[in-house]
Design a protein around this nucleic acid. Structure first.
Length: 428
RNA sequence: GUGCCCGUAGUUCAAUGGUAGAACGCCACUCUGUGGCAGUGGUCACGUGGGUUCGAUUCCCAUCGGGCACCCCA
């Protein structure tokens, strides 16, 4: 501490793609979390928290080996033992793991509704609204069958969540990518179609043709668009079961009056999705979250056949979206009466007085350690304190305190014993 | 991982191959036990490292960080 030579110490920045959530944003974040909890409570979703670290094979088996997430976006950690752990890139697989591990289907019954909220990690190039550590909120319904009414409800819950945050003009894009019976056929057809036009495709698409044909539909290169427009559509190749599932889902969504649009090009990047996939975007096309049905995930991880459906929302994006749209007010300190002291004696007394007021249930603020009366008053003004409670030497002797109305400037000296009563009465 | 752009006080922005200014903020004083207004003064910055140069915040390189696009997604 007593460094005489003043040399410059290099500063340290947060790691790439990781950001701080500063005090000014905390209120907004709290509001988002509170809204999520309220929605969860209403629709009977139970909170679950899973570890930040998981075994890497959990994601390899669930998300899929060939996905970008597993191939190159996982933060891996080698423990001192031989375990290889990863910082979770998403939480659906961990929730499924926990569901199986603790036999939650038995203890809590089906359909089981769960929700989570927390940090996820993906090693990729950061961009606005895209971080290496980001926060997701997710809702999942695990059931004994694949009833489309659950797909409809999960989408509804997403809408209600955004509605609770006053985010308007959102649309949901919905598609069905089939099940293990019909998807392979569609895949083959899509591949065959694209192979015939290989020459017209961009380099990426040529590569996708073999690695991940469904992704061909995501390509934004202008040259590929004409090909894409004529490409076979997933919905046309669904098996009877999937087709009827999709149709029924749309009927429910229609019945709910949700603003959806069919999006034949919508596919998800994770292998475990089946049938329904959807994505909700805000005004301006920013993807706020997405999800879908994952009927085989739990089986894939060694559990019983338990179809499920869920979604995840990017909270960082939602917070930024709300700020950009002016929905969020900058957080401000709550205006409370300010305790102000003058001189050593009053200072000494103040520390304890704060405790007494706290015990009496009176919320106040103070600037202990700030000696100047002017500065203390200025602060009281800045945070819009209705009253300044001024304690000086004289007041300490008299066991009284000055109550100053900050608006009018009118002051009154009241006995300390009556302070709580007086303030409570005035605040009404 | 690839390509392009960017990096100056706490914040928003200037200027400059000869070590930097403003506004707002913050602090103090005017006003030693009374805030808001005003005046005055003060505080605080060239992301980091190397190179070219007599001299670099400025030019070059690297690195770190940010942004955009690709990729992918939340």
């Amino acid at each position: 501490m007593a460094n005489v030579t003043k040399q410059k110490v290099p500063t340290i920045q947060a790691p790439k793609g990781m950001h701080d959530i500063l005090p000014g944003d905390q209120e907004l974040w709290a509001k988002v979390r509170k809204t999520a909890k309220d929605i969860a409570d209403y629709y009977n979703f139970l909170r679950i928290d899973t570890p930040l670290l998981e075994r890497s094979d959990l994601f390899e088996r669930s998300i899929g080996f060939q996905t970008d997430i597993v191939e190159k976006q996982m933060f891996t950690i080698k423990t001192k033992g031989k375990e290889e752990l990863v910082l979770r890139p998403e939480a659906t697989a961990p929730v499924a793991r926990a569901f199986i591990e603790h036999s939650l289907g038995q203890t809590l019954g089906l359909p089981l509704k769960l929700y989570y909220e927390g940090a996820m990690f993906r090693y990729e190039q950061p961009q606005a609204g895209r971080y290496r550590q980001f926060h997701q909120l997710g809702f999942e319904i695990i059931s004994g069958d694949d009833d489309p009414i659950l797909d409809a409800q999960i989408i509804l819950v997403f809408f209600r969540f955004l509605e609770g945050l006053k985010i308007k003009d959102v649309t949901v894009g919905i598609n069905s990518i089939g099940c293990k019976n019909c998807r392979p056929g569609y895949r083959r057809e899509l591949q065959a179609f694209y192979r015939g036009r290989r020459g017209e495709l961009c380099e990426d698409c040529k590569r996708r043709l073999d690695t991940n044909p469904l992704r061909l539909l995501d390509c934004k290169v202008p040259g590929c668009q004409p090909v894409k427009e004529n490409a076979p559509i997933a919905v046309d190749h669904l098996c009877n079961a999937c087709r009827s599932h999709f149709r029924t889902l749309l009927e429910y969504v229609e019945e709910l009056g949700l603003p959806y649009r069919l999006d034949h090009r919508l596919v998800r990047g994770l292998d475990y999705y089946t049938k329904t996939v959807f994505e909700i975007s805000g005004d301006g096309g920013i993807a706020l979250g997405g999800g879908g049905r994952y009927d085989y995930l739990i089986e894939l991880l060694g559990g019983k056949n338990s179809p499920a459906v869920g979604w995840a929302a990017g909270l960082d994006r939602i917070v930024e979206f709300m700020k950009a749209k002016g929905i969020a007010a900058a957080s401000r300190l709550k205006p409370k009466p300010s305790l102000i002291y003058i001189g050593e004696l009053a200072k000494k007394k103040s520390l304890k007085l704060v405790e007494e007021l706290r015990r009496a249930g009176l919320e106040i603020t103070e600037m202990l350690g700030r000696e100047s009366l002017n500065a203390q008053l200025r602060n009281a003004d800045k945070i819009h304190s209705p009253y300044a409670l001024i304690l000086g030497q004289k007041e300490v002797f008299e066991e009284s305190i000055i109550v100053r109305d900050m608006k009018s400037g009118v002051q009154e000296t009241v006995p300390l014993a009556k302070l709580v009563e007086v303030i409570k009465k005035r605040l009404k």
